[in-house]
Design a protein around this nucleic acid. Structure first.
Length: 849
RNA sequence: GGAUGUUUAGCUCAGCUGGGAGAGCAUCUGUUUGACGUACAGAAGGUCAUAGGUUCGAGCCCUAUAGCAUCCACCA
C-alpha cells in the first residue's frame, strides 16, 4: 500500500544507484537501432545551476523516451576542463593560500589543477545522480583525457598542414588580469560610463591647431597619425601636414581616409595601430609603424616616458592633467560607450598587437554553410548559426595559460623554425610553445573525439553522427557552430542530425540569474523542497520551444501537486485491485459506453503525446497528458468506475479493474520520462511489472470505433449542468432533485440512472422516450434532461430565452457561412459538412426547446 | 546600423498546417463525496499591443507603427 502522501525524498531514495548498478544506463544492445547524444560537458569549475538542470533534463527525457521506444540509447557523460575558467578559480584559491602559479611552476600548478578537477568532478557526479540522468558512465570522457588530447593534436597538425591554422601578429583581445589572449566571442560588451577628451593638436608650421577627441588618452603614446575624411571640407586642406601629439610632443602626419566618420566627435581621429583593430587595419593599408605602449599587465611601457610602469588608468589621469596644464585640454564630455570585458575575469580587455595562433575561418565557414545538414529545432536557430558563420573572423586559439592542451608547435632555438608534431619533439634544439589551446578547440571535437575518433572504433561507427544535441541558444556560436565545421572538415559529416535549442532560465522578474545580483537558485535547494521530479516537470513544460523561462517557485509547487495527483490515483487504483490482481482481456466491442469512452480518450492521448514527444515538444506532450489525467481519468472515469465496482457483476468488475490498471500503467509510463523517480515507484507497485520501468515499452495507440459515444458526452454534460443548476439556485451540492432523461430512438446505456444518482444526488430519476415534464430543460445531442424542481416560471422563461438566443445566434452564424457562395466554393468539404451538421443540430435543439 | 524573439485573463505563460480563446497561480462561492484539502464542485475574469491588408473566415499569414527583451556589428 502506498503512503497517503507523495513524499519525493522517500520515492527518490536508492533508485538511481539501482538503475546504475543494473547497467540500464549502458548502451550497446546491437539488436536495436542506436540513438546517441553527448552531454554538453559542464565546466569543472563549480556547482551546476538551474540552466544545467534544464538542459540535462531535456536530454534525459529524450533518452528515457527513446529507450521506451526501443532504441539503444547512448548518452555519453563527460566534462570540460574549461581552460580559462578553471585556471582562474585555481589561481584564486592559490592566492588565498598566499602562492602564485609562478611559485609552483607549470608542473606544480597542473597538479593543483588536477586536484581541483577531481573535487569538482565529484560534485558534478553527485548532482547528475540527484537529477536522475541516465548517462552512460562507461563511456565518460574528460576533455583533457589522453584520447581526446590525441584527437586535438591530430586536428591541430592537420589544419596547420593545410594552412588553416597559422601563427600571426594581429590585434587580439587581451585580458590583463588573467594575462591571456581571448577570442572575439569571449569578450562581452556593456554600456559603461566614460569620458570623451577633446585635445588641441598644434599644426606644425602654423599657429592653428586641430581638435582630436578620444576616450583613451593613454594610448596616445602609440599614435602614429591623425586621420580625417578627405571629403571633410573643414580638414581636407590639412592632409599632408603634421601635428604635435600632445602626449609626447612627437610630430605625426595628418592623413586622409574615408573610414573616418565626419559626423563623429570632431571628425579628426587619432590612430593607434597597435591597440585598436580598426587603426591596425588603417596602418596596414598605409604601411605605418606599430607602436605598443603597454606591457602584458596593461601597464605603460618604455614608449611612454615618465608614465612607464603606471597602470593604464593611472596613466590616463596623469596624462590628462599634464595636457590640461599645457593648455591643450578643451573639454571633457561624459559619455556612455560600449566597453569590452573579459567573459571570465570581467576586467576591461585591452586590444593588443601580439603574435598568436589562429584558425583561418573562411574555408571552414564556407564548408559549414554549404554542407551542414544539422536540423535546428526550432528552425529559426539555423539563421543564428548561418549568420554567425557568414561573419566569423579568424579564431584566436592560443591562450597564455597552463591548464589545457599544450600547443604542439616547437621552435628551433637558433633559427626560429616551427615544427608542428603530434608526437613530442625531443630534439634539444627545439622548445615547445608555452601556450595552450582555447577550451573550445577541444570541445569542438566532442561529438566524435569522445567516441574514439580518429580511430574507426566500433562506438564511432555506431554512434556517430549523434542523433541529437541539446543546448541553449547562447552557446550556438561558442560550440555548436565549431562542432559543425570541425566535424564536416574531419569526418565529412554533420556532427548530429538534430540540434534542439532551448532558452535561458531567469529569475521571477525576468532578470538573468547572476552572482552579482544574488538571484541565483540552487537546484539542490529546490529538489530538497519539492523533489527532483517536480523540478524536472517544471523545467520542461509550460514553455514554448526556444523561449526563456522564469523560475517561479509556485510553478514547481504546482508540478508537485500534479505528481501527487497521479500518486493518489495510483494509490486508489492499486488499493481496489489488490496485490494479486490478474488482469482480464479487454475486448473493446464488449465494453459498456463509459469504458469505451475512456479507452478512446486514452488512445487519443497516447497518440498526441507520442506525436509531440517525437518532435521534442515536451511542453505540448505534457499538456495533453495533463488534461487526460485530470479531467478524463481522475475527475470523470475514476469516479464513474466506482459505480461498476459497487455493482454485483463480478465479471465486469474485473474488466473495470483491468481497465483502471491498464490506464494507470500507461499514464505512469508516459509521465515517467519527465518524472522518472515517481514513475519507477508507481510502476513497481503495479500488480504485474518488469524489474524496472526502464525495461518497459511505450504504449501503442489503438484506434477504436467511436460510434454511439455521444451519449457519454451528453451524460458528462448533464452532471455539470445539474451541479451548475444547484450553484445558481443556491442549493446544497447534495440537494436531492428529480431528473427526467428523455431519449429519441435508443435507450441510453444501462445504469445511467445509477450513475446520475451518485454524481448529482438525484432522488427520483426517470428514463423515458416522452415526457411532459415542466422542469428546466437541457437539450444535448442524443439526450434531453429535465430538472424537476420547484422552479419559478420566471426562471424557466429566462433559461429558455437564454438558450433560444444562443441557438439563434449559432444558427445565424452557420447560415451566414453556408449561404455565402464563396465559403461553399472555397472552404474544404469537411468544414462545410461540419457546419451543415452543426446547423441541423442547432435547429433540432431549437425545435425541442 | 543589422538580426531574432516577444506583446493573449490580475500574474506567469500555452495556443499544432488559418475554421468558435486555454492552463497554472491568484480571486470569489460552496464541500469532512468512501484516492488525493498538495483535494473536490462551480464562478468570475480577455478589443489576443495598435493601424491597415490578404482571405469565405485571422490570435495565427502580409505590411507598417509602438513597447519590451536578446544577439551581432560599429563607436576615434
Amino acid at each position: 500500500m502506498l503512503d497517503k502522501r507523495y513524499d519525493p525524498k522517500k520515492v527518490e531514495e536508492g533508485k538511481y544507484e539501482n538503475w546504475k548498478k543494473e547497467g540500464y544506463f549502458t548502451a550497446g544492445d546491437l539488436s536495436k537501432l542506436p540513438f546517441s547524444m553527448v552531454i554538453p560537458p559542464p565546466n569543472v569549475t563549480g556547482k551546476l545551476h538551474l540552466g544545467h538542470a534544464w538542459n540535462t533534463t531535456v536530454q534525459d527525457i529524450t533518452a528515457r523516451y527513446k529507450k521506451l521506444k526501443g532504441f539503444d540509447v547512448m548518452w555519453l557523460a563527460g566534462m570540460d576542463h574549461a581552460g580559462i575558467a578553471t585556471q582562474a578559480k585555481v589561481e584564486e584559491k592559490l592566492r588565498k593560500e598566499g602562492v602564485s602559479r609562478y611559485d609552483l611552476g607549470r608542473e606544480g600548478f597542473l597538479k593543483k589543477a588536477w586536484e581541483w578537477k577531481a573535487e569538482y568532478a565529484d560534485n558534478i557526479h553527485k548532482q547528475w545522480a540527484k537529477m536522475g540522468l541516465m548517462l552512460d558512465y562507461s563511456r565518460e570522457r574528460f576533455t583533457l583525457d589522453e584520447q581526446l588530447n590525441k584527437a586535438v593534436l591530430h586536428v591541430f597538425k592537420t589544419l596547420y598542414d593545410k594552412g588553416l591554422i597559422y601563427r600571426g601578429e594581429r590585434i587580439i583581445n587581451y585580458d590583463p588580469e588573467l594575462k591571456t589572449a581571448l577570442s572575439n566571442i569571449e569578450v562581452e560588451y556593456s554600456d559603461d560610463p566614460g569620458k570623451f577628451f577633446y585635445f588641441k593638436y598644434p599644426i606644425v608650421g602654423t599657429n592653428d591647431h586641430l581638435v582630436v577627441a578620444t576616450t583613451r588618452p593613454e594610448t596616445m603614446f602609440g599614435d602614429t597619425a591623425v586621420f580625417v575624411n578627405p571629403k571633410d571640407e573643414r580638414y581636407k586642406h590639412l592632409i599632408g601636414k603634421t601635428v604635435i601629439n600632445p602626449a609626447n610632443e612627437e610630430e605625426i602626419p595628418i592623413m586622409g581616409d574615408e573610414y573616418v566618420d565626419i559626423e563623429f566627435g570632431t571628425g579628426a581621429m587619432k590612430c593607434t595601430p597597435a591597440h585598436d583593430p580598426n587603426d591596425f587595419a588603417l596602418a596596414k593599408k598605409y604601411g605605418m609603424k606599430f607602436i605598443k605602449c603597454m606591457d602584458l599587465e596593461a601597464k605603460m611601457n618604455e614608449n611612454c616616458g615618465k608614465y612607464k610602469g603606471l597602470d593604464r588608468y593611472e596613466c590616463r589621469d596623469a596624462l590628462v592633467k599634464q595636457i590640461e596644464k599645457d593648455g591643450r585640454l578643451i573639454k571633457i564630455e561624459d559619455i556612455v560607450h560600449q566597453v569590452g570585458h573579459s567573459e571570465r575575469s570581467h576586467c576591461v580587455v585591452e586590444p593588443m598587437l601580439m603574435k598568436q595562433w589562429f584558425v583561418k575561418m573562411r574555408p571552414l565557414a564556407e564548408q559549414a554553410l554549404n554542407k551542414s545538414e544539422v536540423n535546428f529545432v526550432p528552425e529559426r536557430f539555423n539563421h543564428t548559426f548561418r549568420q554567425w558563420m557568414e561573419n566569423a573572423d579568424d579564431w584566436c586559439i592560443s591562450r597564455q595559460l597552463w591548464w589545457g592542451h599544450r600547443i604542439p608547435a616547437y621552435y628551433n632555438k637558433q633559427t626560429g623554425d616551427i615544427i608542428v608534431s603530434e608526437t613530442p619533439v625531443t630534439d634539444p634544439n627545439y622548445v615547445q610553445d608555452e601556450d595552450v589551446l582555447d577550451t573550445w578547440f577541444s570541445s569542438a571535437l566532442w561529438p566524435f573525439a569522445t567516441l574514439g575518433w580518429p580511430e574507426e572504433t566500433p562506438d564511432f561507427k555506431r554512434y556517430f553522427p549523434n542523433s541529437l544535441l541539446v543546448t541553449a541558444y547562447d552557446i550556438i556560436f561558442f560550440w555548436v557552430s565549431r562542432m559543425i565545421f570541425d566535424s564536416l572538415e574531419f569526418t565529412g559529416e554533420s556532427p548530429f542530425k538534430d540540434c534542439l535549442i532551448h532558452g535561458l532560465i531567469r529569475d521571477s522578474q525576468g532578470r538573468k540569474m547572476s552572482k552579482s545580483l544574488g538571484n541565483g537558485i540552487d537546484p539542490i535547494d529546490v529538489i530538497d523542497k519539492y523533489g527532483v521530479d517536480a523540478l524536472r516537470y517544471f523545467l520542461t513544460t509550460g514553455s514554448a520551444p526556444g523561449q526563456d523561462i522564469r523560475y517561479i517557485e509556485e510553478k514547481v509547487q504546482a508540478s508537485s501537486n500534479y505528481l501527487n495527483k497521479i500518486w493518489n490515483s495510483a494509490r486508489y487504483v492499486l488499493d481496489i485491485v489488490g496485490e494479486n490482481f490478474k488482469e482480464s482481456d479487454i475486448k473493446f466491442d464488449e465494453l459498456k459506453p463509459l469504458e469505451k469512452d475512456i479507452l478512446v480518450k486514452m488512445n487519443k492521448t497516447i497518440k498526441s503525446v507520442e506525436n509531440y514527444m517525437d518532435k521534442y515538444e515536451y511542453s505540448m506532450a505534457s499538456t495533453y497528458l495533463y488534461n487526460f489525467v485530470y479531467d478524463d481519468f481522475c475527475s470523470n472515469y475514476l469516479e464513474m468506475s466506482k459505480v461498476a465496482l459497487n455493482g454485483d457483476d463480478e465479471n465486469y468488475k474485473n474488466i473495470v479493474k483491468s481497465i483502471l490498471v491498464n490506464i494507470l500503467k500507461n499514464i505512469i509510463i508516459m509521465i515517467y520520462p519527465f518524472a522518472p523517480f515517481i514513475g519507477e515507484e508507481l510502476y513497481l507497485a503495479l500488480p504485474t511489472h518488469l524489474k524496472s520501468i526502464m525495461l518497459e515499452s511505450y504504449p501503442v495507440a489503438k484506434k477504436y470505433d467511436e460510434k454511439g459515444l455521444e451519449e457519454v458526452a451528453d451524460f458528462y454534460k448533464m452532471i455539470t449542468d445539474v451541479r451548475n443548476y444547484k450553484v445558481n439556485n443556491k442549493l446544497a451540492p447534495n440537494y436531492k432533485l428529480n431528473l427526467v432523461v428523455v431519449y429519441k430512438d435508443k435507450k441510453p446505456f444501462d445504469g445511467i440512472d445509477t450513475y446520475l444518482r451518485r454524481f448529482t444526488f438525484a432522488d427520483k430519476i426517470e428514463i423515458t422516450k416522452d415526457s411532459n415534464s415542466k422542469g428546466m430543460k437541457f437539450v444535448y445531442s442524443a439526450l434531453t434532461l429535465y430538472i424537476d424542481d420547484s422552479i419559478s416560471e420566471e426562471d424557466l422563461k429566462l433559461k429558455k430565452e437564454k438558450d433560444k438566443a444562443f441557438l439563434e445566434a449559432e444558427i445565424a452564424r452557420c447560415k451566414g457561412m453556408l449561404n455565402n457562395p464563396n465559403f461553399v466554393n472555397k472552404a474544404p468539404k469537411e468544414k462545410i459538412e461540419l457546419e451543415k451538421q452543426k446547423l441541423a443540430q442547432f435547429e433540432e435543439k431549437l425545435k425541442n426547446l
